[in-house]
Amino acid sequence: MSDSGDVREAVLDDGREVVVKRGHAPGATAAEAAGLRWLAAAGTVPIPTVHSHDRDRLVIDRVPAGRPSAAAAERFGRGLAGLHSAGAPAFGAPPPDGPAAAWIGRAPMANVPADDWASWYAADRVLPYVRLARDAGTFGPSEAALFERACTRIPASAEPPARLHGDLWNGNVLWDGREAWLIDPAAHGGHRETDLAMMHLFGCPHLDRILGAYRADAPLADGWEERIGLHQLFPLLVHTVLFGQSYAGQALAAARSF
């Protein structure tokens, strides 16, 4: 999500350019720092180095600005496949040293490990945001019931837990002219199709190239395109909680789609 706290640029004494982010809530910077380090540990996609963090502030390398290219997109696709393949201990597992009470943008996100993807996705990635939207008056009882019925139809999956970025919209993919970098994760163990579905939802430069390279290295299970709406429920509901009615119709349409 785009709204992740106050951000400013600075230069360290040794000349390195950094970004200083102020967390929007207690624990937000710790969760982001743990997520960045976990993604970087896979060694597959460029991730800004975490220099320091405390209760209120996070300091990371600044990514130089550049233009996306087809070659960089293909490298990113292969790197993303490797990142997902690096795995996680369980669905819902937080990064090492990451808090269970985490965030996606300014919305709360619980990282509670589970063995079964379908039940975990319903319980921790769909229904909590339906309840928040209902409590805010964005959804009425009948609309909330639609999501509850949809959750009973989430298909089982044989996919192992993947190491997800968790908030993979276009604004969190930075291009330096040679590579694509990932920032602002809501990292956790999940289904790899969820990251890909979020890129479909919000768009990404050279998306076809990214997906082609990804699938060449890590083929997707049959029917993945029909499951895009299912995996988009999570980001659409988060956006409904954060931004209100403008995303509610899309979330409802995704629920009806399966």
Rank of each mutant, 00 (worst) to 15 (best):
L83R: 05
G203R: 06
A101N: 09
P94A: 15
V173M: 08
L132F: 14
S69F: 03
Y121L: 09
G87N: 10
A40R: 11
D208S: 14
R209W: 04
A10T: 05
D222H: 12
D97G: 10
L80M: 05
E179L: 12
G229H: 11
A197T: 13
A40W: 00
E74G: 14
S69T: 15
D208K: 13
G15R: 04
A28Q: 12
A65D: 13
D14V: 07
R215Y: 12
R62I: 01
I60C: 10
P64G: 02
S157L: 07
R256F: 09
A221P: 03
G249L: 11
N111S: 06
M1P: 13
A158R: 14
I210N: 02
S257N: 13
G79H: 07
A93T: 03
V19N: 03
P64N: 05
R163H: 08
E159S: 15
R209T: 10
G189A: 10
A73N: 06
G79M: 01
D184W: 02
G189W: 12
S157M: 07
R8W: 15
C151H: 01
K21A: 04
A33N: 00
H188T: 15
D97V: 04
E179S: 15
T49W: 01
A72P: 00
V238R: 00
L127V: 13
G5H: 08
